[in-house]
Design a protein around this nucleic acid. Structure first.
Lengths: 255, 255
DNA sequence: ACGGGCACTGAACGTACGTTTAGATTACTG
DNA sequence: CAGTAATCTAAACGTACGTTCAGTGCCCGT
């Protein structure tokens, strides 16, 4: 009893041909679930709430998706496919500055991005694979950008791409803080994004650290735990592999 | 039946004086809750699971904290206070590069940071206030860095500080992806952090965009939605205020 | 010594959840 | 047009949850 579709018996089943397997109520349920999961999270969303949003019974949700976890898997697949579809034109405008720029141009981008922001924080092989793809793409764009003179060369292009993707996605995950701090709604269309993109571009263009500070920080972090000539970044495939490296006794004071 | 403290009747109540109000079982429950909430999330963690981890009964949790939400509030307060305590020495080493460097030097930093990474993604006035404080601190450090010649000047220092804080916290929230992509565990001590900090320092030092690309991106984002002379960033105090700015009809094509 | 208060427990209560079941209605096939 | 499969529902089931309750033992002031 939430939105429209009050008449449960008189369902508008023939708004599309039902020969299309992935339309009608099934798609309605899936979309409602994506929206709900994105706003409230998976654990805090009940099957009944999704069903009510979709205008169907809770039993039908189970009938179509087997279980609540099946529904989650379907949402994952749908959202990730949607993102992969829109990924093509990515980075065309911002040259690697905005990972999901193409996505936001879609009409109903907000629920998809909100869902993505949710699933990014909890472990999921599917999401990890998508992030790895984004990094791989960014590596490619980065190489091309270097060739065309838009991007500077890097000591470790893959690591640089990974950090930029993490920053981009991190800003998406923290979109509520971005909106409060800068007035930029990263889930919405290109409206207020400039308030985030302009300082980000300044950071990514001019940098913040002066050469002296950069040398200082680099020397600091190269001294501990990371030999300069060592393999600079993982091949973006291992599940959790090289992280940790045991626990060598580190000095207490780093300064 | 999980870890130690199997003997429920024989509780080690006098490991500290119980005249200390905020020690003994109450602190054990709170710490167990911080750890559990950080790993599994609030909604997916049962009061009984927290009680079992702390070696007490579920009823005692309610007795001490009133309700599960009261327990959450106590965890919020404790974690945020811990972070505020360690915040002093922040940015001493990395010059604004690493927001929570001081925190990680603590012995049991991982649960606190994991909890913070969880609560950062869901709306909370308390967490928002903390983030606002971090930005405010960063503004101060940034001004000081400019004076001492470590940091470059900015067209909008507060916006730049906000973006850097968002990136730092975003990397923390996505620590699992950072670990997989770069092999750097941001929750742990200074061990593998270099694998993240080195490319981050390169980005923040030299930048990625060439001057031509920076001018291009800046011009693009200045054209839409953001007049150059306008108030550059919110005063970092309004709860959700200036974000959105209504809904002016934006042009469909942004390129 | 003793009585009040506090920490703490096992058991129970009410509820909301995911899921199952049986049946109704609809759509398609021969 | 009969039969069958698919779609969909209301109701019920079992469980796990947050919380309440009544009671037990221990500590501390007098």
């Amino acid at each position: 009893m939430r939105s429209a579709a009050e008449g449960v018996g008189a369902r508008p089943v023939d708004e599309r041909r039902r020969t299309d397997l992935d339309r009608t109520a099934r798609a309605r349920i899936r979309d409602a679930a994506v929206a709900r999961f994105g706003v409230d999270g998976f654990a805090s969303t009940s099957v009944r709430a999704v069903a009510a949003d979709a205008g169907v019974s809770a039993a039908l949700v189970i009938h179509h998706f087997g279980s609540k976890d099946g529904l989650r898997a379907a949402c994952d697949a749908h959202v990730l496919e949607t993102i992969r579809e829109g990924k093509l034109a990515t980075m065309a405008g911002g040259a690697g500055l905005d990972t999901l720029a193409a996505l936001r141009r879609l009409d109903d981008a907000a629920p998809v991005l909100r869902y993505l922001a949710r699933v990014l924080v909890e472990p999921s092989p599917r999401v990890a694979a998508l992030v790895d793809e984004l990094v791989e793409d960014a590596v490619g764009y980065s190489a091309e950008g270097e060739r065309t003179g838009l991007l500077r060369p890097s000591r470790d292009p893959r690591a640089r791409a990974a950090v930029m993707i993490v920053w981009s996605l991190g800003a998406l995950v923290l979109h509520e803080h971005v909106a409060r701090l800068l007035g930029a709604d990263l889930l919405d269309g290109a409206d207020g994004i400039a308030a985030y993109s302009l300082p980000a571009a300044e950071l990514l263009g001019e940098g913040v650290l002066t050469p002296a500070a950069l040398a200082q920080v680099t020397a600091l972090y190269e001294r501990l735990g990371h030999a300069p000539g060592r393999a600079p970044s993982a091949p973006a495939a291992a599940p959790t592999g090289p992280g940790g490296e045991g626990a060598p006794p580190i000095p207490d004071e780093t300064r």
